[in-house]
C-alpha cells in the first residue's frame, strides 16, 4: 500500500508544464518538458530519483533538490558556473548548462514532492553465480 502511494506521488509530480524564459542562446519549444525531464533525471545519480537523495542531508552527502527554493538552486548553479562559489564537482556540471536549462531545472526540482528515499539493502552474493 505504501508503495502505491509512493508511486502515485512520483507520477503525479511528473505531470506539470514548464514555463520557460529564453534568456540566452537556447530557444525552447514545446519539447521543454521532454528535454528537462531527461536532463534532470541525469542528476539522479547523485541527487536521487526526482531530486530526492538518500541520506540525511548531512555534510559530505549530496543534497536533495526536491522541494528546494528554485531561487536557491538557480543562485548556486549560476555561482558555480561563474566560478564565484567553490565546489568539488558542481562547477564542472554548471558550466555545461545554459541559463535556460538552469532555470528550468530549478523549477523542475522545486516542484517535486519530497519523498524519503533509501539505498537498497545489500545482500550476500550467492555461491555459484558468475
Amino acid at each position: 500500500m505504501k508503495a502505491s502511494i509512493l508511486i502515485f506521488a512520483l507520477i503525479s509530480s511528473l505531470v506539470w508544464s514548464v514555463v520557460g524564459h529564453a534568456t540566452e542562446d537556447f530557444i525552447f519549444s514545446e519539447r521543454d518538458t521532454l528535454h528537462i525531464r531527461t536532463l534532470a533525471a541525469s542528476c539522479a545519480v547523485c541527487h536521487g530519483t526526482l531530486g530526492n537523495a538518500v541520506g540525511e542531508n548531512k555534510p559530505m552527502e549530496t543534497v536533495s533538490l526536491a522541494g528546494q527554493d528554485p531561487n536557491l538552486i538557480v543562485g548556486r548553479l549560476m555561482d558555480y558556473r561563474a566560478g564565484k562559489r567553490t565546489s568539488t564537482v558542481m562547477h564542472h556540471h554548471a558550466k555545461g548548462l545554459t541559463v535556460d536549462e538552469i532555470n528550468l531545472l530549478a523549477q523542475h526540482f522545486a516542484q517535486q514532492k519530497v519523498v524519503k528515499r533509501y539505498p537498497p539493502q545489500s545482500q550476500v552474493l550467492k555461491e555459484g553465480s558468475r
Binding site: A44, C46, T49, V54, G55, E61, T62, R117, Y118, P120
Partner: peptide, 10 residues
C-alpha cells in the same frame, strides 16, 4: 559513497 548510494537507489 554518496554517489554510489544514490545511483543504487535510483
Amino acid at each position: 559513497m554518496s554517489w554510489a548510494n544514490n545511483i543504487w537507489s535510483d
